[in-house]
């Protein structure tokens, strides 16, 4: 499903954010990406989204080498990946319903399909009652659930989350994890970068650890890691 082959990323300022990354994620897996601040987690995600280009190596998504994809085709790559960020990134002047429907409108979905699908995903993230609220009328956890609903409404095979619980208190963070876990249970591959030690430790999923740009650990049913590499 996702494969990194000998991937290097050096930014223009000569920071080597990723060094020779080799990583294979299979369909339906749930993978935690951990590592101290500045380790290169977000960089890895940006490469997948083609927000940044690797300096060397190949990245395969759905059997396609996305490093060779032309700029014009990038939007179509992104339609295969749902993304969730720490800061939610919702449109403040649109309701919950509209924020989610928006993702379908821009790819030209049929209005009927939109009316069917949006309530469905809103109920999946348990937000049916808030459909007509605006983002600033919601709690942090609710906002993150809206952004998850938006990420999955077009049914992408992969969901990527960059510290989705970073702005939330522990209880709310667990709500989000339950939602992500549900989505994974329906067959979506999930890759989540996080600093949330407790969550990683108790979910017993595959853990990939990056340290100073290198992949130093890849463990099935792993934990967050020791105190030296985390902070």
């Amino acid at each position: 499903m996702i494969e990194f082959q000998n991937v290097d990323k050096e930014y223009d300022n000569n920071v080597r954010a990723l060094v020779n990354i080799n990583l294979k994620i299979h369909k339906g897996e749930f993978v935690f990406l951990v590592g101290s601040s500045g380790a290169g987690k977000s960089t890895l995600i940006k490469l997948l989204l083609k927000e940044e280009e690797p300096t060397a190596g190949r990245i395969i998504l759905n059997n396609m080498d996305i490093t060779k994809v032309k700029n014009r085709r990038i939007p179509y790559i992104r339609r295969n990946i749902g993304v969730v960020f720490q800061d939610f990134r919702l449109l403040p002047n649109k309701t919950v319903y509209e924020n989610v429907a928006f993702a379908m409108e821009i790819i030209g979905a049929h209005p009927k399909e939109i009316r069917r699908k949006v309530p469905m995903v809103l109920s999946m993230v348990d937000l049916s009652r808030k459909a007509s609220s605006f983002p600033d009328q919601l709690s942090g956890g609710e906002r993150q659930r809206v952004s998850i609903a938006r990420a999955i409404v077009n049914s992408p095979p992969v969901l990527i989350a960059d510290e989705p619980t970073g702005n939330l208190d522990p209880d709310t963070a667990w709500e989000i994890m339950k939602v992500l876990s549900d989505i994974n249970g329906r067959g979506t591959t999930v890759l989540m970068a996080t600093h949330a030690k407790d969550i990683v430790n108790s979910m017993k999923k595959r853990v990939v650890e990056i340290h100073e740009g290198r992949l130093i650990r890849d463990e099935q049913k792993g934990g967050y890691g020791n105190e030296i590499t985390s902070f």
Binding site: L49, R72, P75, Y76, I77, R78, R79, V83, R89, L91, P92, F102, A103, I106, I107, R150, N154
Partner: peptide, 16 residues
């Protein structure tokens, strides 16, 4: 800008 950024992440084409 916000909207444009989000549009990009959800896969809106440049033309759109």
């Amino acid at each position: 800008r916000r909207e444009i950024n989000i549009m990009k992440y959800v896969g809106a084409t440049n033309g759109y």
